[in-house]
C-alpha cells in the first residue's frame, strides 16, 4: 500500500498527488512512468512520473479524470492509500548533450513535459517552452514551467490566456525567428504531437514524442502498448515511451486508443454514481 502524502487540484479535471513510494523514487527519471491500481478490484493504468523526491521517497503523479479509475483515484485523499504503485518503468528521456531544446507541452501532457524541461534546465541547456491549453481554466504548472525556461510561451485555443493559437503556431514563430534547436520534445495529445512532428520535419529538427498508449502489465509481457515506428512494431513499455516523432504512425495510435472508449465512459459514470457526483 502506498500512502498519498499530498493532493492538490490543479484544475477541475486535473489532480496532482504525491505518493510515498521510496523504491520508485530511488530510481525514477524524467520520461519514465508508473503503473497503479487504486484498490483490490482496480485495473492497472500507466501514469507518467511528474516529479520525484529521492530524499523524501515520494513520487508525484498528475492525472486527468477521464475514466472510472482516474475518477476513483481522484476520490482518494491525503493520508489514504493506493493499492499498487509500481515503477519506474520505461526508458528515461535522453537529455545528455542537448544544449538548446524546445519543449512543447499540451494540456495534461505538460505534467510530463515539465520534469524533462526541469532536467534540461538543471544540466544547463537553454530551454524554450511552449505550452498550450484549451482555455485559461485548464492551465497547469505555469509557474513551475516558466521557472525552468529561458523562453516561455503560453497558448490557449480561445485566447482566454496567453496568446490565442496552437502550440505549433508559437513553435513555428520561434524557429522562423532564427532559433536552431538540437531537439524538439513534444508531449501532449496525440494530434498535437503529430502536428508538431509534421512541422519540425519541414525544418529537419529531430523531434522526440512521448507515447501513452493503453497498457496492462507495463513490464514487457502483454504487447497491448504496441505501436508502429519506422514501419516496425515497437512496445511503448520497454522500448519507449519516447520515440522519434517523425517515424511514429499517429493515426494507428489514435485508433487503438479509442478501443475501449464506450467502456471507459460507462465505467466513469459508474464511478461517479458511486460517489454521487455529476459527470463533468
Amino acid at each position: 500500500m502506498y500512502k498519498i502524502v499530498k493532493k492538490r487540484e490543479l484544475n477541475p479535471t486535473v489532480t496532482l498527488m504525491e505518493v510515498d513510494a521510496p523504491f520508485v523514487a530511488r530510481k525514477a527519471e524524467p520520461g519514465q512512468f508508473i503503473i497503479l491500481r487504486v484498490d483490490e478490484e482496480g485495473e492497472r493504468i500507466p501514469l507518467t512520473v511528474a516529479d520525484f523526491d529521492r530524499e523524501k521517497g515520494t513520487v508525484t503523479i498528475i492525472f486527468q479524470i477521464v475514466g472510472g479509475t482516474t475518477e476513483r483515484l481522484n476520490h482518494l485523499n491525503e493520508g489514504e492509500y493506493i493499492q499498487d504503485f509500481v515503477g519506474p518503468l520505461g526508458e528515461p528521456s535522453h537529455t545528455e548533450g542537448l544544449k538548446k531544446v524546445a519543449v512543447v507541452g499540451g494540456g495534461v501532457g505538460c505534467a510530463i513535459a515539465y520534469p524533462v524541461a526541469k532536467k534540461l534546465h538543471e544540466q544547463g541547456a537553454e530551454v524554450h517552452s511552449v505550452v498550450g491549453f484549451r482555455n485559461k481554466d485548464l492551465v497547469i504548472l505555469e509557474e513551475e514551467f516558466s521557472a525552468v525556461s529561458n523562453v516561455f510561451k503560453m497558448m490557449t485555443d480561445d485566447g482566454s490566456y496567453g496568446e490565442k493559437g496552437l502550440v505549433t503556431d508559437a513553435l513555428k514563430a520561434l524557429i522562423e525567428a532564427g532559433n536552431s534547436y538540437d531537439e524538439v520534445i513534444a508531449i501532449g495529445p496525440v494530434v498535437m504531437m503529430k502536428f508538431v512532428s509534421l512541422l519540425t520535419k519541414q525544418y529537419g529538427i529531430k523531434t522526440v514524442v512521448s507515447m501513452n498508449p493503453i497498457m496492462i502489465d507495463g513490464t514487457g509481457m502483454c504487447g497491448c502498448c504496441r505501436l508502429t515506428v519506422a514501419g516496425k512494431t515497437r512496445f511503448a513499455c520497454v522500448d519507449g515511451p519516447d520515440f522519434d516523432g517523425h517515424e511514429v504512425d499517429y493515426d494507428e495510435i489514435l485508433k487503438r486508443a479509442s478501443t475501449y472508449k464506450e467502456f471507459e465512459a460507462k465505467e466513469r459514470e459508474k464511478a461517479c454514481n458511486l460517489f454521487k457526483k455529476e459527470v463533468r
Binding site: I216, D217, G220, M221, C222, G223, C224, R226, L227, T228, T233, F235, V238, E252, K255, R256, S258, T259
Partner: peptide, 24 residues
C-alpha cells in the same frame, strides 16, 4: 516476454490481441 507478431498488414488493428494480452 513480449509476444511475437507475424509482421503482416493489419496486425495493429483495434481488435487484434496478442494471446498474452487477451489472457491477461
Amino acid at each position: 516476454g513480449l509476444p511475437r507478431f507475424m509482421n503482416i498488414p493489419g496486425e495493429n488493428l483495434k481488435s487484434v490481441y496478442s494471446a498474452n494480452e487477451f489472457l491477461t
